[in-house]
Design a protein around this nucleic acid. Structure first.
Length: 269
DNA sequence: CAAGAATCCTGTCAGC
DNA sequence: TGCTGACAGGATTCTT
C-alpha cells in the first residue's frame, strides 16, 4: 500500500485498463471507467486489503491473494508483464500493473462512505497492531474454541492480517504449540502471544515483508524478512533456541487444515 | 453451530 | 528431456 501511495496519492489516473476480468471474483465491469479520469485522494489498509480512495466518492478494494504484486514504474518502453491483469497510468508518467499469475487476488468497488460495510470487510476482527487488540480481546476471541491455535490465528475474524508465515513465527516466539486447542491459550500463554504477534509483524513490515518465490515490493525490491524466519521453511534444521540440544529434533513440518506448519516441539508447548 | 476439506489458478521444483 | 506429483504469501464455499 505504501508503495502505491508514494506514486498515486494526489495524482489523476489518465488511463486504466482491465486486461481480463476473471480474478478471484469477476472484476466490476465499470472498473476501468470509474478509474479513468479520477483523482486518487488517499489510501488505507484493512487486514490484507488495500483501499484506494478516489475523488468521485468510490474506493477501490484490492487483495493481492497468494501471488499478486503491484509493479510501479515509469511509463515508456515497458513491455506488458505476463499475467498483468490491470494497468493504470498517472498524469505524471507512472505506470502501475497488477500482476497475479494465480488470480486469487481481487479488486472491487465500494462507496468510500460505506467501505467497512463491504462484504469482505464486514466480519473482520481487530487489527493486530492496534492498541484495541489486547490480551483481553484475544482471550475473548479464543474462548471456547476447540480448533488448534494455528487455525484460530489464521482466521481473519479473530485477528485480521496474519498469514501462514507470521502465525508460525509468532507461535514460535511465544513458545506455544500450533496444535494446542485455542481455548487453552488464554492465561500465561496469551500474555506471551500478544506481544509476539505485534513484534513479528512490526519487524516484518520494517523489513519490507517476506520474499518467497515471486513477491516483491512495488519498487521491485525483495523484502528481506525471510532471512529472519526462525522456523518457517526450515524443516529439519536445528531450532535456533535449542541449537545443539540433543533432546530437540529440530524444526518439524506438519499439515494443519491444508497448510504447512513449522515449529519446534521442544520449545513450543 | 463449528471444524475440516475442497476449491479456485499457475508456476516451480524434486524425483524418476 | 520430459513427465508426475507436491507444494506455494489466501480465504470462500462446501461437507461433515
Amino acid at each position: 500500500m505504501r508503495g502505491l501511495q508514494l506514486r498515486l496519492e494526489g495524482r489523476i489516473l489518465r488511463r486504466a485498463f482491465a486486461r481480463r476480468p476473471d480474478m478471484r471474483w469477476p472484476l466490476p465491469p465499470e472498473l476501468a471507467a470509474t478509474l479513468t479520469g479520477a483523482r486518487v485522494t488517499s489510501f488505507r489498509r484493512r487486514a490484507k486489503y488495500i483501499l484506494m480512495r478516489l475523488d468521485s466518492g468510490w474506493s477501490v478494494l484490492i487483495h493481492l491473494g497468494m501471488s499478486g504484486r503491484m509493479l510501479v514504474e515509469p511509463v515508456g518502453r515497458n513491455e506488458i508483464t505476463l499475467h498483468e491483469h490491470i494497468e493504470l497510468e498517472t498524469d505524471d508518467g507512472w505506470r502501475v500493473g497488477f500482476v497475479d499469475p494465480r488470480r486469487f487476488g481481487s479488486v472491487d468497488l465500494i462507496e468510500t462512505a460505506r467501505e467497512d460495510q463491504h462484504k469482505l470487510l464486514a466480519g473482520l476482527g481487530p487489527e493486530p497492531l492496534d492498541d484495541a487488540f489486547s490480551v483481553a480481546v484475544l482471550d475473548a476471541a479464543l474462548a471456547g474454541k476447540k480448533t488448534p491455535i494455528k487455525a484460530a490465528l489464521l482466521d481473519q475474524k479473530i485477528v485480521a492480517g496474519l498469514g501462514n508465515i507470521y502465525v508460525c513465527e509468532a507461535l514460535y516466539r511465544a513458545g506455544i504449540s500450533p496444535v494446542r486447542h485455542a481455548h487453552t491459550v488464554p492465561g500465561v500463554r496469551s500474555k506471551r502471544l500478544l506481544p509476539a504477534i505485534k513484534q513479528t509483524l512490526t519487524e516484518a513490515i520494517a523489513a519490507g515483508g517476506s520474499s518467497l518465490r515471486d513477491y516483491v515490493q512495488t519498487n521491485g525490491e525483495l523484502g528481506y524478512f525471510q532471512h529472519a524466519w526462525k522456523v518457517y521453511g526450515r524443516e529439519g534444521e536445528p531450532c535456533p533456541t535449542c541449537q545443539s540440544d540433543d533432546s530437540c529434533d529440530g524444526v518439524r513440518r506438519i499439515v494443519q487444515s491444508g497448510r504447512s506448519t513449522f515449529y519446534c516441539a521442544r520449545n513450543q508447548r
